[in-house]
Amino acid sequence: MLDPFLPPIPWLKALVQPVCDALSLHTLPLHIHEILYACALYHFIFAYLAPPLSSLLLPNSYTKLSYKSKLRWNMHCASMVQSVAISILAPLIMMIDKERKSMNLEERMWGYTGAAGLVQALATGWFLFDLIVMIRYLDVFGLGMLAHASSCLLTYTLGFRPIFNYYGCVFMLYELSTPFLNIHWFFDKLSMTGTKAQLYDGLTLLVVFFSCRLVWGAYSSFNIYRDVWNALNLSNSAKFETNSELMRFGNDRSLPVWLVVLYMGGHVILQVLNVFWFGKMIAAVRKRFVKVDKKA
């Protein structure tokens, strides 16, 4: 399936082409404009839209927040837009991109479709913005969030070789839990801690987070590890009937050790962080509602 977004900007594509060729990121020139558009959009929401709009609509809540809480509020606003958009787009592409759905082992490893590339580009734009914010406000967001942003940006950027283009949409389903996380955080800042609305959201958050990040994440990680293992042990005589259009960027069908270590290492970090965050979420929900029960 072709990329349904705007076509590449010729001068921008020509500008980054030499660097991308040197780094073997062969499909990146086709999507660099989408990455920059996404990064600029999230920065606009974070820095220029969320602050005045929140002050206007919620003057009694937003204006009383501390400096650090305002930064977190603005970040959650940008995250809400990103997570809702990608949670709609990624499953949609997985359903309607017939070429992607029919990929065999080689195509899942080195194949490419423009539609899956769009999802990958929008995710890369978010993680680029996320990394910039995490570095700039490291004292506010901490090393854990910096590690998360770095790992995700590295993983999705490497995908433009192309490699694992098939899995870009798969791992974006992690974001299905993020809207509920944002809502839960907003409830705290709107003096709605311990309300039934927050309880229902908190329970939904735990169920969705466990399902999409731990269960689906573990299942998808197993699949990608299996594909990597099979590709590494693929004999030269083994032949697949590959779609030439899907494999038009797949001339270099190699798996260097550094690439496997970086990509797989990034996934391990993300899975460890997911388990850690799930434990923190359970503790946070229990802390809020155990107090309510005692008062009752």
Rank of each mutant, 00 (worst) to 15 (best):
L255D: 11
E34C: 02
L138F: 08
S55P: 09
Y62V: 09
F129R: 06
S69H: 03
H184M: 07
Y166G: 09
N233R: 13
K98R: 08
T193Q: 09
A147L: 15
G114Y: 03
S211Q: 12
V19G: 01
Y200P: 00
Y48W: 15
A14S: 14
K98P: 05
M75V: 06
A47W: 10
L232F: 10
T193R: 09
G111K: 01
H26D: 05
N74M: 01
A238L: 02
L154P: 07
K287H: 12
L65F: 03
N60I: 03
G142K: 03
L92T: 12
S87A: 10
L92D: 03
S221I: 10
F249D: 07
G194C: 08
V84Q: 05
N243Q: 02
L205W: 02
K294V: 15
A149S: 15
H26C: 05
H26S: 06
C169V: 11
H184E: 12
A22Y: 06
I9H: 04
S211H: 09
G250P: 05
L89G: 05
V260E: 14
A85R: 04
Y67F: 07
P91W: 03
A218F: 15
R288V: 07
L206Q: 06
L234A: 09
L53D: 02
V19A: 15
K98C: 08
V207S: 06
N74D: 12
L89S: 04
T124K: 01
T113F: 06
L30W: 09
L30D: 07
P4V: 12
L41R: 00
I224F: 02
L92Y: 12
L190H: 10
V119W: 00
I45W: 02
T178P: 02
T124E: 00
Y166K: 08
L122S: 04
M75Y: 07
R213C: 14
A284P: 00
L255S: 10
A40H: 01
W216E: 15
A197E: 14
F278E: 08
A284F: 05
F129E: 06
M95N: 09
F180K: 07
Y219E: 15
C20V: 10
N233H: 15
A121Q: 03
V133R: 07
K291V: 09
L57D: 02
F129L: 14
E107F: 11
I32K: 02
V292N: 01
L89T: 03
A121R: 04
T157Y: 05
P179E: 12
W277N: 13
K196V: 14
K101V: 10
I32N: 01
P7K: 08
A284I: 03
A14D: 15
S177Y: 00
